[in-house]
Amino acid sequence: MSQDTTMSVSRSGWARFGVQVRKSLPAKVGVLILFVLTLMILLAPQLSTHDPIRQHLRHRLEPPSADFILGTDHLGRDIFSRVVYGSRISVSIGAAGVLTGMIIGIGLGLLGGYYGGNLDHAILWLCDLLLAFPGILLAITIMSVLGSGIINVVIAIGIWSVPTVARLTRGQVLSLKSAEFIDSARAIGAGDARILSVHLLSNTFGVLLVFATMRIATAILTVAALSFLGLGIAPPTPEWGSMVAIGREYIREAPHVITAPGIAIFLTVMACNFLGDTLQDALDPRMVGRE
């Protein structure tokens, strides 16, 4: 019974994911965008037409042209090259933050759900505490203390993800821990460590994968918002949110400065959401046939 409420990534799960991608237009769009994004991240030096930090002060706030495909910002920096290089920063910080949060959150969720008792209560209370900071507020509070910088943003995104991951993992563990296959594992002599790491973790992987995909989308939005507010990645590092923040000053005379980085954030986040949705449909048997 408990098997019904969890998602495991079996071979058929991946096969269903392939089928879903082929038959759903949003999924195809998502895969295509992520493919282009991966190319941008890997081939940034080859794709960019200028040095993303180099200033061309005689070409300030120029609209798109043959030389500057997406125009230039207030210091004459090439926006296209900054958007291309920015993909490395925005995506890697979002992903690294979510990964950090996943590692800590999964650990806490497994321990709380499996051992129960006071440990579980303490972990739940900690989660409630962190969840009392609505939305981006927790990340903002952390950044206000730590100050801006790449590592600090990763820490902020990590801590912000911990309570949700921990609760999600704990819920999965609770529904699984009395399952027959766990009893069988225990009967043949598996210790707590093995049950936790092999049996419980592998069976919660599907849910966590869907969560991580969608969380990366939110994390990229959060990183961009932090930088927009001047709390995340400081210029001249090309980061999409801080590019919008800079362009905001010149919004009337040169709206192209904020257009490109904004669209880059939007497309990346949408691709992650599309993919997360498709993964969910593919990995959760209950969803099959719903749409």
Binding site: P26, A217, L221, A224, A225, F228, G241, V244, R248, I251, I258, T259, P261, G262, I265, F266, V269, M270, N273, F274, D277
Partner: peptide, 14 residues
């Protein structure tokens, strides 16, 4: 999907 993926601060500026 577009609605949940738009960065609020950018949408506001647009």
């Amino acid at each position: 999907f577009v609605g949940v993926s738009l960065p609020g601060f950018w949408l506001g500026l647009m």
